[in-house]
Simulated scan of single mutants.
Amino acid sequence: MPPNPFAEALTQYRELAGFTQTQLANRARVSTSSVNRWEKGLSIPKRDNVEKLDRECEASGRLLAAWRAQNSRTGWPEWARDLASIETAARHVTLVTSAGVPGMLQAPEYATEVFRAGSPMASAEDLASLVTLRCERLSALPELRVTAVFPATAVGGLSPSLQSAQAKHLLAWAETGRVTVCLAPLGTSMIVPVAPLMNYRLRSGERIIASDHADGTVLLTADATERVDAVVTAALTTALPVASSLEYLESLT
């Protein structure tokens, strides 16, 4: 059975319209994988995409109504389903990754390699734009404090030039007092989900938890807090103390 009202409605009206997932995706100008995830209830689209899906399926607003019903179940207000809005409203975020450096803390050199690998056909201009957006994000959020937990190999496993650039970048942020870096030591494994976790604490006291996937950012439902707390605790237990983490980064510069 489809896991939520929107997933059920999308599947129903797509089939009534006679479209495959790929056909609907093409008409609505979204990816087939997105339609697949939405129908499985693994993520929820933004309103503009829902309006396009509703229009293409000739659902007369019923898809939009189902989307509103599902959104009310998540516990998050509508504005809080946009990551940029969440970041602006947040005062602290805990970032947990099992492999690379969290995007918000990537040095330009590191981010360039990440985007080049993920978008091999992108032009140099497009790459530069993506890198600028990623690397300037934390500077644009002066009230946000960050705790980042990730493996030491995310930096130590890079080429010498990238090692040095990324280590210096992290140390510079640590010196501001806004960023706390906790590295899982070499030779250990972080038993956490592969997809990065982002645990935001808003100035209102609310918490919003998100996770990065290849198809975009997914917001977890309000009842995920306890599970995510366990993941964060496990990651921090694995990591080195802050002072040792910074000492390791200094050795790479």
Rank of each mutant, 00 (worst) to 15 (best):
W38L: 11
E39P: 09
K40C: 13
K40L: 15
G41M: 11
L42C: 04
L42H: 10
S43I: 06
S43T: 15
I44E: 14
D48Q: 06
N49M: 06
N49V: 14
V50Q: 02
E51T: 01
K52D: 08
D54C: 02
E56D: 04
C57E: 09
C57F: 01
S60E: 07
G61M: 01
L64F: 12
L64A: 11
L64P: 01
A66P: 05
A66N: 08
A66R: 03
W67D: 04
W67Q: 02
W67R: 05
Q70F: 03
Q70K: 07
Q70E: 11
R73Y: 07
R73H: 12
T74A: 04
G75R: 07
E78V: 06
A80T: 05
R81D: 02
D82S: 11
L83R: 03
A84W: 13
S85V: 12
E87F: 01
T88Y: 11
A89F: 00
A89D: 14
A89E: 15
A89P: 04
A90K: 11
R91W: 09
T94C: 07
L95Y: 02
L95S: 04
S98R: 02
A99V: 13
A99L: 14
V101D: 08
P102K: 08
G103I: 08
G103D: 09
M104H: 06
P108D: 14
P108N: 12
Y110C: 01
Y110W: 14
A111E: 01
T112Q: 10
T112P: 04
E113G: 09
V114K: 05
F115D: 09
R116Q: 14
P120W: 09
M121S: 07
A122K: 01
S123F: 01
S123I: 01
A124E: 10
E125R: 03
L127V: 14
L127D: 05
L127K: 05
A128H: 11
V131E: 07
V131D: 12
